[in-house]
Simulated assay, not measured.
Amino acid sequence: MSNPYTDTLTINSNQMQGRLSAWLAKHKLAHRPLGFDYQGTETLQIKSEDWASIAVALYVYGFNYLRSQCAYDVAPGGSLASVYHLTRIKDNADQPEEVCIKVFVSREDPRIPSVLRIWKGANFQERESYDMFGIFYESHPCLKRILMPESWIGWPLRKDYIAPDFYEIQDSH
């Protein structure tokens, strides 16, 4: 039985699998290559339950900078995605190696391990993804709303979100 996360692609393997994907496969770390974006950045899909261990492996590999983390709603009623752009900065800062990691989760139970302990820059970015999409970053020390008021109901950037007709702003004093 084939597993898309551990099997290497036989069709278009040269186009889909990059250097990092080959390294992860060599070390038997579960992932799925998604090809390259328009700038040539390798994109990988990681299962939520594998993300914590793979994040540590990527840090050990040399990806020492979290350039950005964001989230998006794939489709109304579909899955949610948390996207991490990692950079490997060494002495040759002019040519840093980059990778894009996508972690897809179901909207019914959107849980992803936090990478705050690995990359400190994930703090506010994971909080924003929680606030806008309702993705719970497990073991995040301060996972609470950052843009919306604490009393806000729902996740405003989900495609199935229904905006309230009226929201009362509380007095600031």
Rank of each mutant, 00 (worst) to 15 (best):
I146G: 11
V60H: 14
C70F: 10
Q125R: 04
F104P: 03
P110I: 01
N64A: 03
R67G: 12
Y137F: 15
F63H: 02
F104S: 13
D73P: 00
L116R: 02
P96K: 06
A75G: 04
Q69W: 08
P110Y: 03
Y38W: 06
R145A: 11
D37K: 05
H85F: 02
G121R: 07
V99W: 05
L80N: 00
G78F: 10
Q45C: 11
C142A: 14
G78S: 14
I54M: 12
A55S: 10
E126H: 03
Q69S: 02
L143E: 07
A75S: 05
L86G: 04
F124K: 06
I146P: 07
F133W: 01
V83R: 12
I112K: 02
S48D: 13
G78I: 03
D50T: 00
V99E: 11
R107E: 13
G40Y: 09
I54E: 04
F136Q: 14
R117W: 04
S82C: 12
Q95M: 13
I112G: 02
S79W: 07
N92R: 09
R67I: 08
G62C: 09
Q125M: 13
S129C: 07
P113I: 08
G78A: 14
G121L: 09
R145E: 11
A55M: 10
L80I: 00
W51Y: 09
A57H: 01
Q125A: 08
N64R: 13
L66R: 06
S68Y: 12
Q39R: 01
Q69L: 15
Q39C: 08
I146D: 08
V99I: 15
S53L: 04
E126K: 09
P96Q: 10
T43F: 05
W119H: 09
V56W: 00
K102F: 13
R111T: 07
R107S: 15
E49L: 06
T41Y: 03
W51H: 15
I54G: 01
A71K: 14
A71M: 08
R117H: 10
Y38H: 13
E108L: 07
S79P: 06
A57D: 09
E49F: 11
R127A: 01
Y65V: 11
L80W: 02
G40W: 03
A55C: 09
S48G: 06
I89L: 12
I89T: 05
E138T: 13
P141H: 01
G40P: 03
A55H: 04
N92G: 03
L66T: 03
N92Y: 13
S68R: 09
Y84K: 00
V74R: 13
A71E: 07
Y61F: 04
